[in-house]
Lab assay of single mutants.
Amino acid sequence: MEVRTIKVFTTVDNINLHTQVVDMSMTYGQQFGPTYLDGADVTKIKPHNSHEGKTFYVLPNDDTLRVEAFEYYHTTDPSFLGRYMSALNHTKKWKYPQVNGLTSIKWADNNCYLATALLTLQQIELKFNPPALQDAYYRARAGEAANFCALILAYCNKTVGELGDVRETMSYLFQHANLDSCKRVLNVVCKTCGQQQTTLKGVEAVMYMGTLSYEQFKKGVQIPCTCGKQATKYLVQQESPFVMMSAPPAQYELKHGTFTCASEYTGNYQCGHYKHITSKETLYCIDGALLTKSSEYKGPITDVFYKENSYTTTIK
Rank of each mutant, 00 (worst) to 15 (best):
K7A: 12
F9R: 10
F9P: 01
F9H: 14
N14T: 12
N16S: 08
H18M: 05
T19D: 12
T19H: 11
Q20M: 11
S25A: 13
Y28C: 07
Y28P: 07
T35A: 15
Y36N: 01
L37D: 14
L37T: 09
G39R: 05
T43P: 06
I45D: 14
K46M: 15
P47T: 03
S50I: 13
S50D: 13
G53Y: 10
F56N: 01
Y57F: 12
V58A: 04
V58F: 11
P60T: 05
D62H: 10
D63G: 07
R66P: 05
V67R: 11
E68Y: 01
E71M: 06
P78Y: 14
S79Q: 15
F80Y: 06
F80G: 06
Y84V: 04
Y84C: 04
M85T: 05
A87R: 03
A87L: 04
N89Q: 13
T91R: 04
K93M: 13
W94D: 01
W94Y: 01
P97R: 09
P97C: 11
Q98P: 08
T103Y: 08
T103I: 09
I105G: 00
I105S: 00
D109L: 01
C112A: 04
C112G: 08
L114M: 06
A115V: 01
T116G: 12
Q122I: 05
Q123A: 05
E125H: 05
L126T: 01
L126Q: 04
N129Y: 07
P131D: 03
P131N: 01
A132C: 07
Q134T: 10
D135T: 08
A136V: 02
A136P: 03
Y138I: 14
Y138N: 12
A140G: 06
G143P: 04
E144A: 09
E144G: 07
A146I: 00
L153P: 02
A154I: 05
Y155V: 01
K158F: 03
L163S: 12
D165R: 00
R167Y: 00
R167M: 02
T169D: 08
S171I: 11
F174P: 06
F174W: 07
H176S: 03
D180I: 05
D180S: 12
C182Q: 09
L186T: 14
V188P: 04
V188I: 13
K191V: 09
T192N: 13
T192P: 03
T192G: 12
Q196Y: 14
Q197K: 09
T198S: 10
T198F: 15
T198W: 10
T199H: 08
G202H: 03
V203E: 07
A205M: 02
A205T: 01
Y208S: 09
G210W: 01
T211P: 03
Y214Q: 06
E215L: 03
K219M: 13
V221W: 05
Q230Y: 14
Q230I: 13
A231G: 02
K233C: 15
L235Q: 00
V236F: 05
V236C: 07
Q237R: 12
P241H: 06
V243Y: 01
M244G: 02
M244E: 06
M245F: 15
S246C: 06
A250Y: 04
Q251M: 15
Q251L: 15
T260E: 11
A262R: 01
Y265V: 02
N268M: 02
N268A: 00
Y269H: 15
Y269A: 15
Q270N: 15
C271N: 12
G272P: 04
K275H: 02
I277Y: 05
T278N: 06
K280E: 14
T282C: 10
T282N: 08
L283A: 01
L283S: 03
C285H: 10
A289S: 11
L290I: 15
L290W: 11
L290P: 02
S294R: 13
S294G: 08
S294E: 11
E296Y: 13
K298N: 09
P300I: 15
D303M: 09
V304A: 01
V304H: 05
F305K: 01
F305E: 01
N309G: 10
T314S: 15
T314A: 14
I315G: 15
K316C: 15
